[in-house]
Design a protein around this nucleic acid. Structure first.
Lengths: 196, 196
DNA sequence: GCCATCTTGGACCAGACGTTCCAAGATGGG
DNA sequence: CCCATCTTGGAACGTCTGGTCCAAGATGGC
């Protein structure tokens, strides 16, 4: 057998993902990728293809490794509205403080960037999973009598998903986390049954 | 008096605005601006400065000439919840069909692009105006007894503003307008008084 | 330890980028 | 009609871009 790669492709892809996430695809040059990963251009192109392939692979990693676990946790959390509240609390915390503060959500950012069909497909899947997570949490809430009667679960799930995009968008520009929390609370309060 | 400009600076700026709006700042080259406007590089640089200045001026024009009139119409529309419903209807229609379909909102897109302080200031003002418009419409709704009792007007205004960002974000990726409408309706329904 | 096979470093490329520059042209007060 | 003053077209600039290429190095089956 011939020579093998001298690096872990997924570990490198994670560094690339973080770079594109923070700075955006168009604003990030191959030279920066080379610097951040320590790889040479040859290894980069041989492993991932050109810049656009690299971006799509990084975005796919983001969606699968970062977003989806959150969405599945939301789906599987049977508490109902408290599960949704916890989702937004953790989201806003992650978006406004710590290592990834003001990076926004890579998928939300990607909506504004290009029109690449591969990217669009990833974003549609991302949205479907997010909405499905919200839908599942809302169903649990309804089953426990937490919801205002007559609430449309599908429409409310869409609303909550769109709200998450709004949080992601504004957090990247440095929005006040308390304002974002108030917005999320308003959504939950308006779904909640009045006299429980 | 010496020679005067052979073009209307604001008319040209509008073409530039549309270019940056549709394609994004980073993805648009000066060569495209030259082609779209018919101006020469000299006139462009003499009138607006470099690319970043040009982008900021275009974004300012967008916020002032396109967004703010909508926000003021919302503020001044005394109907309450129907005013908010009309706002979202028109928003979704404009984002998904017609000349600007799938362009998103230039200000929402700008959140994802750079971290330029001038841009951020514009976006903060944009957000304040949007939220203020929602707040005014909600106050009118409350005055007319349309609102669920106990609703927090400030928090609900923030929620509706964030929802608008979500609509803008997803519409750029080609979201189904009916899904967006359902999301907006869910927000309004959950604010509405149950037995009017 | 040899060698076919793959990886790696880094030089290199053509083209696109934003920006500058200046000669030529247009303008209108005098 | 002249001339000071500004605008305009387009050539030119250095830099940076994404991408290619190949000699040198590493690997492991034999």
């Amino acid at each position: 057998m011939p020579d093998i790669k001298h690096f872990d492709p997924d570990e490198v892809l994670e560094r690339v993902e973080r770079l594109f996430w923070q700075r955006g695809a168009a604003a990030t040059g191959i030279a920066e990728v080379v610097a951040a990963t320590g790889l040479s251009r040859s290894s980069l192109y041989a492993t991932y293809g050109g810049k656009q392939d690299l971006y799509v692979k990084a975005l796919r990693r983001y969606v699968e490794q970062r977003s989806q676990p959150m969405f599945e946790a939301l789906s599987g959390d049977g508490r109902g509205l408290p599960a949704i509240a916890a989702f937004f609390d953790r989201l806003i915390e992650a978006r406004c403080a710590g290592e990834h503060a003001r990076w926004g959500c890579m998928a939300t950012n990607a909506n504004a960037e290009g029109t690449d069909p591969d990217v669009r497909r990833l974003l549609d899947r991302h949205h479907d999973r997010l909405r499905a997570g919200m839908r599942a949490a809302l169903a649990a809430a309804e089953a426990q009598g937490q919801l205002r009667p007559g609430a449309d679960l599908d429409a409310s799930a869409e609303l909550l998903a769109l709200l998450a995009y709004g949080v992601n968008t504004r957090s990247r520009a440095g929005a006040d986390p308390d304002a974002l929390r108030k917005g999320a609370s308003a959504a939950l309060d308006s779904l909640r049954r009045e006299n429980p």
